[in-house]
Design a protein around this nucleic acid. Structure first.
Lengths: 251, 251
DNA sequence: ATGTTTTTGATTGAATATGAATGTTTTTGG
DNA sequence: CCAAAAACATTCATATTCAATCAAAAACAT
């Protein structure tokens, strides 16, 4: 069996079960443990999978959402730069949808004093928006414990009463194959709906989100403009550019 | 089972039930108690959960700081007593509407852990409700700068999707002649609508509110039960009692 | 064919994960 | 308040998995 074949086999096994044990791969491929180790090392280096003690897993299956506390510290600087880039796109008089999430919160200070109207489903956004003296509307709905986002029937119904010039959306995963994804199906639905009801949509994503795939898809890449930083690998951006609009800010 | 798989399993269990016992995890995973302890320790260190004696729970943190204005609430002690009185009336399984305002916020700590559903239009209520582990829904709408209440067309539309067992309402003025009043017409409308859609309605009012008349009326006295303290003058209460239900708590 | 490079599998000590045993702390129930 | 019970942290021995190394095998080039 060729090296390439073997590695493809490993990846296809992973797709089926999202985690695999070393022994399973050895049995399936007939290769020795040493060889498989080398394969896993290579595949990890090219971001195809993540090694874990005893085997491998899909690049973070992200079954569980990181808590707010965890998110707020991570990549804050990069997120702020991305947010600043996004802010440049907002014009006077715009009606925005601002998604719940830590990336989108960073945008708010840059909007301060602008004559715009913002609709949001994120609890934490609201006080920031008020602070920035922006006319703020919220969608209704059930408040999710973890992310403190408003979701569900009430949120959907609320959203249907609005049309947006621009929607600013956060994402947990951006991949060529699966587009924009996020862990929670309910939140994904809200994002999807907001994008549908908006003339233009922007997805904010720092470099850690690229190549990641989360559970629920909410948009194809050609539906949105991705705003990110130049910490994302060159070739990834090039690949994206084939059918996606991308704005890159230096970090 | 791999370490990674086991930890993911623990987190997904947590997501379903928000607290889990050690034994449940041991049974579910088949690993030893020692191993699970180690897992919990790791997961806690990476902010994925919070350990508690006998198991683990979701990690929660207060996000919305109370504003200065909120911290210096007038008659806080009296308001709290009134809130406590109101809490006694809430039964397991109730669906509540909780009005925006400083009186109603005081109620929330007394509801902690109760098996109820709360719908609110008050920004500051939301994080308190989450803190108290209560299923929380919000009405949509425009966010008023001063009171941080959600009002307007969106709020009205949202409210029409609910029916309540009990509505807990704040008021700025209580008078024999003009009933229950509040300064803002939009907020008054929300209060009125919530009362209409509720089987029973309670208005919380400290002694300073009696005899006051504000701009917008939202209820006649015979529509609601007033909850107050014995700091209200005797004869006022007597007058009220002719056609209003009144609950009085000693202060 | 012969030397070179690449791939492979086996071996090793190091690192990590595990379960049982121990004594300590916290909770519970009288 | 005390004592029993439950939950806990700590330690240790064992088992598993890992990274590094090396020699054999295969693929390749000349």
């Amino acid at each position: 069996m060729l090296t390439f074949e073997r590695q493809e086999l490993i990846l296809s096994m992973l797709k089926e079960q999202q985690t695999i044990k070393m022994q399973e791969i050895v049995d399936e491929t007939g290769a020795s443990e040493s060889t498989i180790r080398r394969d896993l090392k290579e595949l990890e280096q090219s971001n195809k999978l993540k090694r874990i003690h005893g085997g491998a897993t899909l690049f973070q299956k992200k079954l569980v959402e990181p808590t707010i506390a965890e998110k707020t510290v991570k990549n804050r600087h990069e997120k702020r730069l991305i947010a600043q880039k996004a802010a440049e796109l907002i014009e006077e008089g715009d009606c925005l949808f601002l998604d719940a999430g830590t990336s989108t919160v960073e945008l708010i200070p840059f909007l301060k004093g602008k004559n715009i109207v913002v609709v949001t489903n994120g609890l934490t956004n609201i006080s920031e928006l008020l602070e920035a003296e922006i006319e703020t509307h919220v969608v209704g709905g059930y408040v999710k414990k973890g992310t403190r986002a408003f979701v569900g029937r009430g949120a959907i119904q609320s959203l249907e009463g609005y049309r947006f010039d621009k929607a600013i959306i956060g994402a947990n995963g951006i991949s060529i194959q699966d587009g924009c994804t996020t862990p929670d199906p309910e939140e994904a639905f809200i994002k999807e709906l907001a994008i549908k009801r908006s003339s233009q949509s922007y997805v904010l994503a720092d470099h850690t989100k690229f190549g990641e795939i989360s559970f629920s898809k909410f948009a194809d890449l050609n539906e949105v403009t991705i705003i990110t930083s130049n910490q994302v690998e060159e070739d990834m951006i090039e690949q994206l550019l084939r059918n996606t609009k991308v704005e890159v800010t230096p970090a």
